[in-house]
Structure formats: C-alpha cells, structure tokens
Design a protein around this nucleic acid. Sequence first.
RNA 1: GCCCGGGUGGUGGAAUUGGUAUACACGCGCGACUUAAAAUCGCGUCCCUCUGGGAUGCGGGUUCGAUUCCCGCCCCGGGCACCA
Length: 849
Amino acid sequence: MKKYDHKKIEKKWQERWEKDKVSKIDKDDRTKEKYYILDMFPYPSGEGLHLGHTESYAASDVFYRYKKMRGYNVLHPQGFDSFGLPTENYAIKTGIPPVKTTKKNIETYTKQMKSLGLNYDFDEKIDTSEPEYYKWTQWLFGEFYKNGLVYKKTSPINWCPSCQTGIANEQVLGGECERCGTEIIQKEIPGWFFKITDFADDLINDLDKVDWPEHTKKNQINWIGKSEGALIKFPIKDLEKEISVFTTRPDTLFGATYMVLAPEHPLVASLLKTINHKSQITNIEEVEKYIKETQKKTEMERIEGKKKTGVEIKGIKAINPVNKEEIPIFIADYVLGGYGTGAIMAVPAHDERDFEFTQTVITSETREPSENFIKNVIKPNSLNDLKKYLEFLEYGETEKEKLNEYLMLVLAGKRLYTGNGIMVNSGKFDGMASEEAKQKITEFAGGKSSSNYRLRDWSISRQRYWGCPIPIVYSPDGEANLIPEKYLPWKLPEDVGFKPTGISPLADSKELKERTEKIFGKGWVPEYDTMDTFVDSSWYFLRYPDAHNLKEFCSKARQKYWLPVDLYIGGAEHTYMHLLFARFFVKAMKKIGLLDFGEPFLKLRHQGMVLDARGRKMSKSKGNVINPDKLVEKFGADAVRIQILFAAPLADDIVWNKDNIVGVYRFLEKVWEIGAAEKNESSAAVKNILQKTIKKVGQDIENLKYNTAVSEMMKFINAVKKSKISRADFEMFLKILAPFAPHLTEEIWYSLRGTRTTNADDTRTNAEIESIHLEKWPDYDEKLIKDKTHTIAVQINGKIRAEIEIEDGLSDEEVKEMALSDKRVQKWMDGKSSKKIIYVKNKILSIVV
RNA sequence: GCCCGGGUGGUGGAAUUGGUAUACACGCGCGACUUAAAAUCGCGUCCCUCUGGGAUGCGGGUUCGAUUCCCGCCCCGGGCACCA
C-alpha cells in the first residue's frame, strides 16, 4: 500500500482543477438559489499570507464547498485591497514603483491561496489599484458629490507627522497613528468629507436587521455614540448674539451658573475681531493668550493629568433663558469644539466636569466662593437613591446619618449629585420628577429636542501617492469641479517622486498638470490628494458579481440576483472602520437610487487571531511569524486547513502550538489507509454512527462550528478503524470530509471509482468520473440514527447512583419500575419510598426520597 | 471611570430551550513491535484521605438536578475615554 503522500496528491489535483476550471461559475444561472459568501480581501503586503488569513479563508472555503454540494449557485470571490501606505513606503525606501511591487505581491498571494486549495476564480478577481476598478471608486465619489454627500472644508484634522498625511478619527489609536505609532497632532488643512453622520440613526437602527455578533453591533452603536438631549439658546446681554448649547440635562437648566465656549468656537473669533466687542472685553490680552496656549498644547493636555484650565471673557454676560439671570462666559478647553455646538451651559451641582472646573479655576480666580456658583436644582428622590449614587463611598453603622450629611452638603452646594430626582429651586417646576422636567423645561426655554453623535463625518483626503485620485479639478479662481465621467478613470500619474514632503506627491507630476490643462484649460489645477483606502474597500463587494463590467459598477440584473452578501467572514478588528464605512456606502447608494437594499452583509462572523505558542501576536519584529507555506510543505494543505479549523472555535483566538497538527495528519493518514483497504459490509455500529456523523457535520458547518465538525469525523474514523465499512458508506463519509480536505478526498474518490471500481452499475472510465466536489451532500436517515437501547442515569437525591440500559420504546412507567427494582438503586434508597420521580426521556431518572 | 468579551484537566478545547462535566486532539506514562531509535498499535491519564467524596474563577440563591438561570465579588483580554 502506498503511503499518504500529500505533496504528490495536492499538486496533482491543483493542476487538474485549474485545467478543468472548476472554480468557474455561471453568474447568470437563475435556475439555482444563490449564495454569496465573502472573505475580507487582503492587503497584498510583502510578507505574504499569514495564518490569520489562512483560518478565515479556510473557513469560507469549507462553507463554499458545502453550500455548493447543497445545490446552491455560490459566489465566493477574492481580490486585493492593494492601495496603501506600506507599498508606498517601500517605494520611498527602494525606488521601486508601487504598481510593480503590488503586482508581485498579488502573484505571491495568489500562489499561496492556490496552494491551500482555496477555490477562488482568479479571473474574476478585484484589484483596487487597477484603473478598471478605481474608475468606479471615482464614479461613486462623483455620484455622492452630485447628491450632496461630499463636501470640502478646512478643519483641524488628525495629522500624522511621520506618514505626512491626515487620517480619520477611526485610524487614531490612543492618540497615535494606527500604522506607525507616531503621536497624532491636529492640523488645519482643507479636505474632503463624506457625510456619514447623515446616516447615524440608520447605522444604529438597521443593525436590528442583520445577523451579526452581538458585541460587534454594540461596539458600532457605542462608536456612533448617540446621545439625546436638547438645543437651548442663551442670549448675550447687550449684543445681537446668542450661544446655542447642547445638553442632555435640560432639567438642570435653572442650575446653570456660567457658560463655557471651546477655544475654537466661532463666536470667540468673531468677538475678538470686532472692535466694538473688543473694547467691551476688559481682559482681552488674557483671553488671547489662553487661546494661543491651547492651540499649542493640543496633544500635551491628554498626557498632563487633565487638570482643567480656562479664562473668563470679562465684560460680557449671557442670560439664562429660564430665569433671566446674568451669568459669566468662560473659554476652556475641556469643552470640545467638534462636539455638540462647541459650547455648554455649566451646571456644577449636577455635572462632574463642571463641578471640577468650578473648584479648580473659578475659585482660584478673584471670585466669590464656589458655593455661590453651585446651585442645586435636583435633589435625590430618597436617601436610597443617594445611597445608590454614592455606592463607591463606605458607610458603616451611621450610614443614614452620613447620607443625610451628604444630602445637606448637596443642598448647600458643596457636593454634587448627578442622578435623577425631584426638582427644587426651579420655579414652577419644583416638585416635578427630573425625567419629566427635561421635556417641559426645554419647551419653557424655547429650546428643542435634539440628538448628538460621537461619530464625525469621514475625512477621506490623504496627502499621499498610492491611493485613488480624487476626481476633482479646480478652476483658475479656485472653484472645485467634478471631473466628468467620460474622463474616468482619472489615472494616477507615474512621474512622481515618492518622498513625502507634507504636500501631496501628485503635485510633483508634470503629466498630471499638463493633462488637466489640456482637458480643462489653462490655469486649471487637479486635486492633489488621494482617497483614504477605506473608500476602496467600502464597495468592493458590490463589484464581484460583475467584476469585468466596463459600463456599470454592477449591472442591475446581477445586483438583483447576487446582492447583498449572505455571509461575510473576517477579523473583529474591522468592527469600527471597514464595517461602518461599508454600511454607510450601501445606505448612501440606496438613498441616491444606485442600490435597492440598505445593509451590505446579512450575516457576519469573525475569525479570531492566531497567536504564537506564548499567546502573543505574531509580528515581523518579534520574529514569531509562522509561515503557512512551510506548514503546507510539511503537512499538506488539507492538514493545515483542518488543524486551523479544529484548534478552536472560529471566533476565538488560536494559540498556535506547532505539535498539534500531527493529530490531524494522523487522522488523514487513517482516512487514507481505510480508503486503500479492502471494503466489506458495514457493521451495524458503523452504519449508525455514519448517519449521526452526517447529521452533526452538516449542522456544524451551517453554524460555522468547524472544530466540533472535525472532532465528529475523527470519532467516526476511530470507530471504523475498529470495525468494518462498505465502499458506499465510506464514499458517503468522503463527501462530508471533502469540503475540509479537498485534495485527499478527491484522490481517494477517483481511486475508488476509477481503476479499482468493481461496481457493476458503474461503467464509466476514470476520465469520465466527476469530481467529488460536484457530488451532492449526502442525506442521513433519521431511522438509522435512532438507537435501539439507551443508557440512562439514575439519580437519588441529586446524586448519580446507577446506570441502567433500557430498550427503546419503553413506557415511562416501565422505565421507573426498572430503575426502582435495580439493586444499586434499592441500596441507596435504603428502604424509603420515593417522594417524587422525574424522568427525562432516554436521559436521566431522578428519584427524591 | 465607562462599554464589550472571557475564566472548564498539564495544554487547545467539548457539553447550555437546566439533564450522566471533561468528547475530540496534543502532551505525558506504561506496554507491544525493533539490535536500537523513529513511526505505528494497545492501555492509562481531573483531584483526594478512594465501598466513598470533591472539582467548571470565588461566595450565595432558585431547582429533584446548575458549567448553563439569578444576586454579589475576584481575575484576565479588548475597546473608548473631558462627548456636556
């Protein structure tokens, strides 16, 4: 008997499949139900495919093969998210153009994917840096532009001094650039924005419509960060101006004792500009100095213990709309320019930040004692409420006294209380529940209910080379114009230097400048920025059904049949950016009539990370990266696929232990040996377990519980090794193993059906035999699964005291009698009679004495 | 501080509409085969004071019965962090 030789087998079938074009599907076949399973496409880096990719792609490949065997027309495409910084940085270092590097890396990735037996149709692949693709990225930008979903503004953006580009909020991690770890600074530059905030509510609400992991949904909701409250206007005394604030606590409006403007609030600049106002402000130098300081420190403030600072604008006052009280206005950087209206009403008695500001800034100024500033307008409903609010404080025997003491301090304006309660010191609202007062006081103050979001509009301008050019040109007087569709793709120029200078590399290109002037006229200049690469990946899944269409991003007919994606598999690290942006794109496209569905991914599952044996992330710098190629070389693609799916549930992290794969290899060897051995009639036990295995493996695949599917098949093979199996039964097993081990099963399948076939009904020659991967998924027979006997456990007072064998089909009474007559049971019942007997059919019998 | 996960043998993990905890695999130990080793095969492998008792991070509760449900903690991982 020949030994299992994975190298020979896998190479042979990969070549054969390629020749037979088994990955081709008919995208216009409407006779079958469709299924669209999608992998998050990789960035083709120089390092090649890693084990994380391997897991995710093996998982989707199994699912794809399974669905196909179930009779679906399955789309399972792959592509490359090839624009991006690492390739550009490589160009800066080596001078090799990104186009060249990208081509080479894609070749490597493709080869690796093929060697894993992943059945993608690479003729239909997507490469986001190819003009045929990015033409449509630009076209979509144009559609958004025409429909008011894109705008340009100059604003402080996150700037990475090392990458020399602006980046999105989502790409800042802990104040550092997610790519290079450099500290992010704020910089005022003009750039293009997508109006993702227009869709904030839909992005929250529509999560109800999709089957996604709960934590992913919750994280998206938190990221969007909706808070409900009210917009309230405070007039400024003696000036035709007002300050609008957003608050979630309009019920505390009577307690507003001062206002705070963010240093970048437009009103601040306008007050300082106008002579009249200037002369009214008595401490103008102080104010100007403070603003300058805050501009300078931006990032420092985070590190420096967050002590609150601020300065009063002396000489002007705001008027509280509910009680007409005059209150001072401060500038302080604890109020953020970008959130809400950039201004707040401060209620120190009921807000921790305002309280702190009062303690640290106002009392340190030449002001009255802070008590006069802290006006209580809500008191706890009861001492119990207060206790709950103060749960962090320790109270002993005198708990009640201490609570009372605290309450007195609250009412005296020396402590704060941020909970709900009963209105006091609030005019006609006294005695009302604070929750109820929110609405009432908003109305009384002439304000309106409003929501605010943590989510910002998506800044997409990048001052880099290797990205999709923004299809905009500027007229000689600086007006932005969309480049008409007939000039798309608006190609990335090639005559540029790659060294980042802080201005976009595209500004270097003579060709681009000439092209622009030739088409649009003298003095016209192109947009030099390129798009964030997340734009490329926000719509790629819409392209696969019609990847080569030159007239549309995807034909209506193909859209209607294939979209949206049925199952999407990828890492949880994309929860915030990619998944949010892709959802935004689909919603925006639906709004402007380009799509007729609102959610891109009906079902989403994550794969975990693959960690090294010590539980650390694999990285080049740690030198602990495991190369899948070496594993494939040594153990074969089939073993690598199965081991990585067997190691842990798909969503969990895998701690990669190099020794564990031998277990899977042994399993495959056993399958090989059984395949080569003489076949008999199956034993009754094998017949029974085969049916159970078919059922369980099918269910497990449907639920993406591959680890237990694999263990089930191992159990089956262990049982067969101890018994006998018929050829027909073994072939059934091969079919369910086929999605996991496509090469091995194909080889055995042909050997059984071809040269060695002894089946009289099967007169086909070897060449005519069809691939196992075109077979139907086997049905199981519920009758054969049914066991003839059951072992049931007998509990007495909650402890298991005996096991009894019963025949299937006995009545409950008969089982009870059997149990009660069992010697062991009688011993433990000790002559007592049973008070209660609970029988769970074929599982357990519980006797209470 | 807030939000989201998670804690089961030496290791990865299995089992949840509450029903025999530790399947499957790695590792380890013993044995067979071998001149020997590797490979392979067989047996064993949660702990203990072992006719029994105790274990699913800890402490309570509900129940005939809890890894699963409830209450209160501890620990680990991830995310957010002056968001008014």
